[in-house]
């Protein structure tokens, strides 16, 4: 966090929530980023991600009971793919945080949080469908939008569309 910066009230709430998580997990998390639109932190030790998620949901002072979104991102420059989870505490503390989790670009996997927030079930499938990272422990890990026998992961920045699909020409 930059010193001397005046934070808005909602970012202050997020920072306080981060402090509680940081107290428990310490070095497994990155520093807090006080981005005004989306305050976030990154999970460094990704094997701890489900544990962190459960802690965020169940801790009496956090109660992150609502996953608003889980999006995939291609960090091509870092040779990584990842997810950004927007998590909120609806009707309890009204604070929100975004969490980033990254894994290697080819053959990488991220532990699933589908049993923590059920929203993550389909969203993780979508991230897998578009970016190709696997979610270990997911109850139903298969494509959700593209056909099951589609080749490649369309939202990767170096994606090239296949020539034909079942004998039908795909490119223009």
């Amino acid at each position: 966090m930059e010193e001397g910066k005046v934070l808005s009230q909602s970012v202050q709430l997020s920072a306080a929530a981060y402090a509680i998580i940081h107290e428990k997990f310490g070095a497994a998390l990155s520093a807090f980023d006080s981005n005004e639109t989306m305050p976030f932190f990154e999970v460094i030790d990704i094997s701890l991600w489900p544990e962190i998620a459960l802690f965020m949901r169940d801790h009496p002072k956090l109660r992150f009971n609502y996953m608003a979104c889980l999006s995939g991102v291609d960090f091509q420059a870092e040779d990584k793919v990842g997810i950004v989870c927007n998590i909120e505490s609806l009707g309890q503390f009204n604070h929100k945080l975004a969490v980033k989790v990254k894994c290697p670009r080819s053959g990488g996997s991220i532990p699933s949080v589908a049993y923590v927030w059920h929203t993550a079930n389909w969203h993780e499938r979508e991230a897998y469908d578009m970016f190709g990272m696997l979610f270990t422990g997911h109850p139903d890990m298969r494509r959700i939008l593209c056909p099951d026998d589609w080749e490649g992961y369309p939202l990767l920045k170096d994606y090239k569309v296949q020539e034909t699909y079942h004998g039908i020409k795909v490119p223009y």
Partner: peptide
Amino acid sequence: CGGPYWEHGYHVLKGVDRI
């Protein structure tokens, strides 16, 4: 002909007259 998806719409058939 695929309309606005003609170039980047990986999932769109570029004209139903192909099938």
